[in-house]
Amino acid sequence: MSTSAADRALQMIEQCVDPKSLRQIAVNARRQGMSDVARAADLRLYEILPSEKPGTLEHDVWRSIHALEGTLSSERGKTTRLGRTRPKIARVGECETVKDLILRKEPSEGFHMLLERQMAELTFEAVALRHPDRFDREVLDAAEQRLQEAGIILSEPSGLAR
């Protein structure tokens, strides 16, 4: 894929709201060795998949879940679901699930997996920091500390860097 074709694909991805199209763009981009285009299509897919209202905690939580499940499914060549996180959300809700995972002594497996895949902004720790009105100071402090210990620089609640 030429640079102009990649630029066109990236522009199309920004506007696309069809999951099937985004999946196909990602497949085609990977086949053609355009990992940046494939990643952009994947990230856009994870943005549009949640049925919750964009900008809400619930949307961000489901975006994170879709990202991790989608990445693992792609890597493993079979559908992968978060078999403990989804049922916990069904029992106690998104906010309580995020809180419980952040307050654990050790980071969750999902935390490490997202960091390894350069998706720190999708960890539940980053999600909590983007929604400080939904969490106690204890949770926010623990989230910030965990990200800092992982080498993630917090420039502001919504901006993370390595």
Rank of each mutant, 00 (worst) to 15 (best):
D100N: 03
I89H: 03
F135Q: 01
L140S: 00
K99L: 06
A38H: 01
D36G: 07
L114I: 01
E121H: 09
D36L: 10
R91K: 10
D133S: 14
R23Y: 01
S64M: 06
H131K: 04
N28L: 07
M113W: 11
H131W: 07
A26R: 10
Q24C: 04
V27C: 07
A161Y: 06
T79V: 15
R8F: 13
F111M: 08
D60W: 00
L129I: 08
P87C: 08
R86Q: 00
R146C: 00
S35T: 13
R91I: 09
E14N: 13
E14C: 12
A41L: 02
Q11C: 11
P19C: 05
T85Y: 00
G110R: 00
A142E: 01
D100G: 03
A161W: 10
R31Q: 14
I89Y: 05
R30V: 03
K78Q: 11
M12Q: 15
V139R: 00
D60N: 02
G110I: 08
D18V: 12
E109L: 12
H59Y: 04
R86G: 07
Q15L: 15
D42L: 08
E109K: 11
Q145K: 13
E69C: 07
Q11M: 14
D141W: 04
A26T: 02
G55R: 03
L160F: 09
E69F: 05
S108D: 09
H131D: 05
M113F: 13
F135P: 02
E121F: 07
K20D: 12
E125T: 01
P132C: 03
L22C: 07
T3F: 09
K53P: 10
R130E: 10
Q32L: 14
R81Q: 09
L154V: 14
A143G: 02
R23G: 11
R146W: 02
M1S: 06
E109Y: 06
R44S: 00
E121N: 11
C95H: 05
F124I: 05
G70Y: 02
P157Q: 03
C95Y: 04
H59E: 06
K53G: 08
V27T: 10
